[in-house]
Nucleic acid binder design. Structure first.
Lengths: 216, 216
DNA sequence: CAAAAAATTGGACAATCGTCCAAAAAAGAG
DNA sequence: CTCTTTTTTGGACGATTGTCCAATTTTTTG
């Protein structure tokens, strides 16, 4: 099971590096306008290298999606699942707000790739995988809220988490599109709206009135 | 204000025709992979014609967005605003479900263009315009529900309609991505989830238990 | 050190892209 | 009908794309 040589590990590291640089390039220009030459230049290598490590452009982009997925989900796992249960919703809003501020272009890329997945079946598979993992993460948290605290859910956990995911998804897209305001202002509106929705959808502890926690 | 000649009207008709064909082509292949040659072939004209009626590819695509916007909003105006108030939410679910079934590819295109707008400012302007009109349409309906019937909104109409729009937006994307089931099944799930959200977000008349109306 | 393997280069390649234009065809005006 | 204008054509243009490869450099191995 151990890698047969040390060069194998080195090659894997280079692959990871190229995927990371490709992600940066893709997040900057978008799927429709990114080229392998852009990625090669951004990575400081020649064009042929990309075909040395990746069979095709499609394979590279698939690995970009998988890589992005792992990173974002890991961050969510770390910061949300570990958050105290008594103010879970504010913690969720804080984490998402910070992520929107720091990794705005990555979120933009995610919607780009999701839209592209609607046309390219092999992308859709990867996108579906990511969404399922995020869905499960939300479901796990809702189950904890339901059992460890007496949170009342109008529907079963699976349906509720699916709804909550779609709600958050739609509101993040709204936040990204909201350019009439500054980024911080748009995120603030996002957090407030999320707070309202969560209060309405789930009868959490505090009923209302206290504003959402700010991330700065 | 009247067009100075009849040929002007004819040219306008041809423009509209080309825009329509371009929409079909774009909905089929997506923004990233559509070419002017595709559109020309789909329209049964030569390539040069497109540059005779449209200065550039970008201008043509902008008109596609504007055209799509007008058609979809007009349909929503007709079928939703005219719906009876006492079962507004089921009527909304029925209209959206039917639209998802009949114009699935157009909805897909809409998410593609929104994602593209996050990279191309001139597209973002058009997308923003469309979203504002849809936002206003929802706000108008919520205001009617609030005044003519005693619907209790936890927040002001503007915030509520913004939230409702994002919720529907996220749920439609979820429906489009849900390919593990048949189209009818995915739409059914969409309608059920929408029903749950609407019941939770706004304390409408009937509290629960009766399933959402089907569109067939 | 020398030989073998891996990594990297720079460019060629066919294909496709948006753009543009001179000339032909069609339509309208007198 | 002829002349003018509008519409349409088919192809050329340079730029860019993903793909691929022979030659070179670097690294590893014996």
């Amino acid at each position: 099971m151990t890698p047969p040589s040390k060069s194998q590990a080195k090659a894997e590291a280079k692959r990871a590096f190229l995927i990371e640089q490709a992600t940066i390039c893709l997040a900057e220009k978008g799927y429709a306008h990114v080229s392998l030459r852009d990625i090669a230049k951004e990575s400081g290598v020649s064009l042929g290298i990309l075909h040395y490590y990746f069979a095709s452009k499609e394979e590279l982009l698939l690995e970009v999606i998988a890589s992005y997925k792992e990173r974002f989900i890991a961050e969510l796992e770390r910061e949300v699942v570990a958050a105290p249960l008594d103010n879970f919703f504010p913690a969720l809003a804080a984490v998402l707000g910070r992520s929107l501020l720091e990794d705005r272009k990555l979120h933009r890329l995610w919607y780009d790739l999701q839209a592209q997945a609607l046309y390219t079946p092999v992308f859709l598979e990867q996108v579906h995988h990511t969404r399922n993992r995020l869905h499960d993460l939300i479901a796990r948290m809702l189950k904890r809220l339901q059992t460890e605290r007496g949170a009342a859910l109008a529907v079963d956990v699976s349906a509720a988490s699916s709804i909550l995911y779609s709600v958050i998804d739609g509101m993040i897209l709204q936040c990204l599109l909201d350019e009439s305001r500054t980024a911080a202002e748009a995120i603030s509106r996002f957090q407030l709206a999320l707070h309202h929705v969560l209060e309405s959808l789930f009868s959490s502890g505090s009923p209302a009135t206290h504003p959402v926690e700010r991330g700065d």
